[in-house]
């Protein structure tokens, strides 16, 4: 590092320290409580559908899939109606982490980029946020599955 670079670095560090005390902290406790309540409520709604499908005679471990599909439908609908971003403003991760948040990320981007065309706009961009989620789910799922299979196989 040259002398001028070192000096620049020192200046930047000093500024970082000075700026630090002016930074507002996110209201962590309030945010976490709201995330808990909103995420919990969405999960409870999901439970209602699981219970409903189970009551219709579906085995409990099979009722999760149709319930998830209904939740995706609801997340997509509320996004289209312009409601989901308001829920997220209050709920933060409580709205982003449930499967409805995943649906929201697809509809929100698809709607936004429809103006750039139905193919290269809407359809290409609908995975801007959901794409990485699918990519990492698949890659980690395959890797974890193979490791588990290999270890179990050796046993």
């Amino acid at each position: 590092m040259s002398q001028s670079q070192a000096q620049k670095k020192q200046e930047q560090d000093a500024y970082k320290k000075l700026a630090q005390k002016h930074q507002p902290k996110p209201p962590l406790l309030k945010n976490v409580i709201m995330a808990f309540l909103v995420g919990g409520a969405i999960s409870a709604v999901g439970q209602a559908f699981i219970n409903y499908f189970a009551a219709r005679g579906m085995p409990p471990d099979k009722a999760g899939a149709p319930a998830a599909i209904v939740m995706v439908f609801l997340g997509a609908l509320l996004t289209g109606l312009g409601v989901y971003d308001s829920i997220a403003k209050v709920g933060g991760a409580g709205a982003a982490v449930p499967i409805t948040g995943y649906a929201n990320s697809i509809v929100a981007t698809a709607m936004e980029f429809k103006r750039e065309g139905w193919i290269m706009g809407m359809s290409a961009r609908m995975f801007q946020i959901a794409g990485p989620v699918i990519v990492y789910a698949v890659v980690s799922g395959v890797v974890v599955g193979l490791i588990r299979w290999f270890l179990a196989g050796v046993q």
Binding site: G39, G40, A41, S43, G91, A96, P98
Partner: peptide
């Protein structure tokens, strides 16, 4: 509610 809420709280 509680478990789903807790997972979201971790995310927050």
């Amino acid at each position: 509610f509680v478990v789903g809420g807790l997972i979201c709280a971790i995310g927050q």
